[in-house]
Write a protein that binds this DNA or RNA. Structure first.
Lengths: 116, 116
DNA sequence: CTAGTACTTTACCTATTAGTTAATTAACCA
DNA sequence: TGGTTAATTAACTAATAGGTAAAGTACTAG
């Protein structure tokens, strides 16, 4: 049951990250809070489209949206990013093994060169 | 230009990971190669559906599909996972800062308890 | 109290995703 | 050769994603 909930959250987080507009927004927010209009500035997209991307990031818990007068300042949130890291960590041995193989292969090549 | 290509690859990788069936397949493959039927076994899904998921993982470079008689043994590939880690690493300071705040907060609470 | 600013909501469109069943391909084995 | 196994392709459907334009909301400032 809990596993399913976790699955859903990871689904949401990865889906939110699977869009370069949203990743660029996150990058902007990693440098500090920003309003929706500020987030929109670098893009040639309508404001409603931006608003939707903001909503997706918020639903995934990657950002929080506050309120100050007419403005909705957004801030980045750490927790889901941390979950992504934890999820990928579980495969660390995979890429470490593949780097090991690469190193052994390079050593082999260099050995052959020396032997000529 | 290159940035765009990278964006596309990250889009694909994150999108491939945004599905718990595919994540479970990857997990199975992290323990060793498996045929499509072996990958399908834990799921109550038609084989064509499984085949599509395999295709998505392969397009994202997360797995490779070989050939041995009628079988298509799949193996997990490290590179895209590594790219995900590298992408998230760039936000490490975010969650470390948030852990710091959490720790300071906990210390504050404990201090208050002691003061009573 | 009205006009403007900053967003959001609604209604709509198109493309993609995730699944299905039925048909097809490819290789093996008897 | 012909049947069986493994997997893919084709054709279809329903739901979701990403975009638009136009209307609506909420607050501020003159």
């Amino acid at each position: 049951m809990i596993a399913v909930l976790d699955d859903d959250r990871l689904d949401q987080t990865f889906a939110a990250l699977a869009n370069s507009t949203r990743r660029r927004m996150l990058h902007r927010l990693s440098e500090g809070a920003a309003t929706v209009s500020e987030l929109a500035a670098p893009f040639e997209m309508s404001l409603p489209a931006i608003s939707k991307h903001v909503r997706v990031l918020e639903q995934a818990g990657l950002i929080r949206q506050g309120r100050k007068a007419q403005f909705r300042p957004c801030t980045i949130q750490a927790a889901p990013l941390n979950e992504v890291v934890e999820w990928t960590e579980q495969y660390r041995h995979i890429w470490e093994a593949s780097f090991d193989r690469l190193h052994r292969y390079i050593n082999e090549i260099e050995q052959e060169k020396e032997d000529k």
